[in-house]
Amino acid sequence: MSVGTFLLGAVMVAIGGAGGSVLRWWLREVGMRRAARRSSDGDLRAKPWLTFLANALACFVLGIVVARLGSAASGVAELGFLLLAVGFCGGLSTLSTAALDVVELIRRGSFALSVAYFLLTIGTGMALLWVGLVIAS
């Protein structure tokens, strides 16, 4: 792989990652504001589900991208894969925030909800990835 090809790939990942990260941030900001307007503790209850939404959306989009471009793409398709799958979906999804949400639920005494949230996050992500693959195939 030449230096130019590597740099172009890095730029594609950076652009996609910036877009996905901004979308994740925007979803959380809008969701937190709406939840705060509805009740005084609404933002605390909404926070994990906004992370869930971002992760679910990223898995669904990833399924579509993989079905359309393939995970072993080359040429222009590889650049599209780097932009969308690696960059955008990688920036939109967030395992670290989901893990923090689980810990915060446990700290608030919601152990059963934290386990349910964890399992639902993993299960929904896998299911939506599969749905994306099927729809786009």
Rank of each mutant, 00 (worst) to 15 (best):
M1F: 04
M1P: 09
G4W: 07
T5A: 14
L7D: 00
V11G: 05
V13I: 12
V13M: 02
I15D: 06
G17F: 05
G19C: 15
V22E: 02
W25H: 15
R28L: 09
E29K: 04
V30W: 13
M32T: 10
R33S: 07
R34H: 03
R34G: 15
R34S: 15
R37M: 12
R38Y: 06
D41V: 06
L44V: 04
P48Y: 09
P48V: 05
L53I: 11
A56D: 11
C59S: 12
V61T: 13
L62W: 03
G63E: 09
I64N: 08
A67V: 05
A67C: 08
L69C: 07
L69Y: 06
G70Y: 06
A72C: 01
A72G: 05
A72R: 11
G75R: 01
A77R: 09
F81L: 08
A85H: 05
C89T: 14
G90S: 15
G91S: 14
L95T: 14
A98F: 15
A98W: 14
A98Y: 11
A99K: 03
V103N: 06
I106M: 13
I106A: 08
G109V: 01
L113D: 11
A116Q: 07
A116T: 08
Y117D: 05
L120G: 15
T121H: 02
G123M: 05
T124L: 04
G125P: 04
M126A: 06
M126T: 12
L128S: 13
L129H: 03
L129M: 15
W130R: 04
W130A: 10
W130Y: 11
V134G: 01
V134A: 01
A136P: 09
